[in-house]
Write a protein that binds this DNA or RNA. Structure first.
Lengths: 244, 244
DNA sequence: ATAGTTATCGTCATGTTGACAATAAAGCTT
DNA sequence: AAGCTTTATTGTCAACATGACGATAACTAT
């Protein structure tokens, strides 16, 4: 039997965002450099406190916009999971709700001197231990990478890393970067274009690049993700599976 | 530029649990009946406030144990997602972290008169509108059902609904109940037994039931889920896909 | 033009799936 | 005990999907 009215404990709640993008065939993550203790000077995921009257996704979008200086967020933002509240922050119990943004490469405002500096970092540097993240952010990043990897298998969200219009090769580069594998261009092309309800031919072609011009595609309307939704937008059977 | 020290807003944080099981070929969910306002008398998901010094999964397990009178939770418990804090509770902003329990049918203590009464209800009754849940619990249940459905496609978690040892037919009944489809017994048998790293033959057989005795299986050690983990225990390719 | 590069189409052997026949091994009925 | 009913399990086969890789096509650079 629960005691009748013990005032419920209250916790500070933060949102953190794992913003991923593909740059030069490498998966990158957006990090800020902490200006205050604890972990002063260490890289950390962008994020901050949820304000009164805000919803989680709202807060995540706001924080990301504030810390990157971007007005309208590109890509697809969804909730990843919650961590804590026990033992995450030396200052006390803080619950954090992590989010995942999968976005095309976008420029980040290198903020002024007193603001936290946000920039893209190769994910590899963190995995290899060259860069150490504050708090439990390494664990959150790991979970985000897992999520991103599996999302590509069965959802159309690979395209969230691309611009509005993209070539099959650009889409393939996303898969290769996220999965860390190479994919056969011919089989990938067959699968991507052959999956019903995934891509839509724009009729346009690239020009000026090396090699034969490529057709430009966009996401089919029915495949476009609803922002925020824990999108189980299923491409059944899986679009393709990583090799190895 | 974030203001330097505005005391962060604090929120009450609850955990809710969507406990699912399969009873008589139907998917069931564990609900309590609310004894106090708001939504007094309405069915709701079991749950309660996170206490100081607790982690989320810990709190979810504790609440579930308290409200069902079960000592050791069967099945597999994992985090589902967080909701709020805006506008979920008429009394004020409350953040809730929902969890999903997939478990074999277990008896729930019909509590005394002043405790919240917990019991299994057919999921169908809620989907058909015969039963209305408190708060935003209908939405949470929907998300849980989606999650459970997709988990069965690529993870070994269907077995979390079964006892330690089970027959292929019992496992198939789980899939049929969760997906709401019928599956061909012969093809299911082939796939379940043929997937490497999924099942392990115990050598034992059923006896006494109607029809030919069936072999008893258990989950292969490598397929056993780690409790709590957002298990992406991948059975690649998918174990099987729902028909229709 | 020739070479280099990338895109796209095709082929083929192999593996997986869905539909469904056939057989096996129990309990139940008479 | 013989036959019927029920459920489990093994096979078969055609349709389809996949991975490996050959062959062309259509550009840019020299």
């Amino acid at each position: 039997m629960p005691a009748s009215h013990p005032a419920p404990e209250r916790f500070p709640v933060t949102v953190d965002v794992v913003a991923l993008t593909v740059r030069e065939a490498q998966l990158n993550v957006l990090l800020i450099t902490r200006l205050i203790e604890p972990f002063k000077g260490k890289p950390a995921l962008p994020g901050g406190f949820v304000l009164a009257g805000e919803d989680l996704l709202e807060a995540a979008g706001r924080e990301l916009a504030e810390e990157t200086g971007v007005e309208h967020l590109p890509g697809h933002l969804e909730q990843l999971g919650s961590y804590g509240p026990k033992g995450r922050d030396p200052r006390g119990d803080v619950l954090t709700v992590a989010h995942l943004l999968m976005a095309p490469d976008f420029p980040v405002l290198s903020a002024g001197s007193d603001a936290e500096h946000a920039a893209w970092y190769p994910v590899r540097d963190i995995l290899e231990g060259k860069l150490e993240l504050a708090f439990d952010h390494a664990r959150i990043l790991d979970d985000a990478l897992e999520r991103a990897k599996s999302k590509l298998e069965y959802s159309p969200l690979g395209a969230a890393f691309c611009d509005e219009e993209f070539t099959i090769a650009q889409l393939r580069a996303v898969y290769e970067a996220v999965w860390g594998t190479r994919l056969d261009p011919r089989n990938f092309h067959r699968k991507a274009t052959g999956t019903p309800g995934f891509l839509e031919d724009t009729g346009r072609m690239t020009a000026g690049d090396a090699g034969r011009p490529a057709a430009l595609f966009r996401l089919a309307p029915e495949a476009r993700p609803t922002p925020g939704q824990p999108t189980r937008a299923v491409l059944n059977p899986p679009l393709m599976r990583p090799r190895d």
